[in-house]
């Protein structure tokens, strides 16, 4: 089987800077693989490892951050054999459909893909849509909320965890599957795997060669830091005095 797993590089929130007008400054950000996407990587890696004939390709879109070698190694150390990234300044601010259009086209270009996996949502915008849209654009069987995925003959056995029920589905291929955040525990990349990852092939393609334009389809009116409620921050230790203060505070409620 030929599998693809999609992931997004997102800024660690605690490293985002704040501009004077409460705008977000991504200049000095630390970037990481989206936490939810790591579940998709783990799911796809497990399926791939079942047979030496299986292939797993990691796929991402974004601006220059997709070239970061540490992040490339980080994803390749978790199971994928190769990586494809589509790069454009525009893609840093792409919305869900703009992202899905590029991913769907890249998946078609890769060719003969049997299944593509997604995390349930990106770590930054968390709209939980890109997997659904990509599957729809490809015209493939599309399933979200997958809490368990197993290979089953010529298809996949997928357990879906919904608000009021669970379902077990036989999904024929090709398929697009978005996994839930409690579907598995992602592996930690070992030093050995990270070293091996440096030798795995990775390709960066410019968006210019694609039909998809990467333009937002929903207009962004503003993106501003949320003010947190100011608090008194009276902190005490757990000695007698602190306990007495805590009890007094609680009694006043």
């Amino acid at each position: 089987m030929k599998y693809v797993v999609c992931y997004k590089l997102v800024p660690n929130e605690s490293s985002i800077g704040v501009g004077g007008d409460k705008s977000l400054d991504f200049g000095g950000c630390e970037w990481e693989i989206g936490q939810y996407d790591l579940r998709a990587v783990e799911t796809a890696a497990k399926l791939t490892e079942a047979s030496p004939e299986n292939v797993l390709i990691a796929l991402t879109v974004g601006d220059a951050v997709v070239e970061n070698s540490k992040l490339k190694k980080s994803i390749l150390a978790r199971g994928p054999q190769e990586l494809l990234a589509v790069k454009s300044e525009k893609l840093a601010n792409a919305d869900s459909l703009a992202t899905a259009q590029v991913l769907a086209e890249a998946i078609k270009k890769i060719g003969d893909v049997d299944a593509v996996f997604f995390g349930e949502g990106s770590g930054d915008l968390y709209s939980q849509q890109v997997g659904n849209m990509t599957g729809a654009l490809l015209g493939w069987n599309t399933v979200n909320a997958a809490s368990r995925v197993e290979a089953d003959g010529d298809g996949l056995l997928v357990e879906r965890n919904l608000e009021d029920c669970t379902e077990v589905l036989k999904v024929s291929l090709p398929a697009a599957v978005s996994v839930t955040s409690d579907s598995c525990v992602p592996r930690l990349a070992s030093m050995k795997e990270i070293l091996k990852a440096g030798k795995k092939p990775s390709t960066i393609e410019p968006l210019e060669g694609y039909q998809a334009d990467g333009d937002r389809k929903v207009s962004q009116l503003s993106l501003k830091v949320v003010d947190k409620t100011a608090r008194k921050c009276q902190i005490v230790s757990d000695d007698e005095e602190g306990l007495a203060a805590a009890v007094a505070w609680l009694r006043k409620l």
Binding site: L97, M133, T142
Partner: peptide, 23 residues
């Protein structure tokens, strides 16, 4: 905004060629 609703929103958006506004 439930899991099935989100799935159908994605399907609809792909047909209409627009993004989805969620949450």
């Amino acid at each position: 905004q439930c899991r099935n609703g989100r799935l159908m929103a994605g399907i609809a958006a792909a047909v209409l060629g627009v993004g989805v506004q969620t949450d």
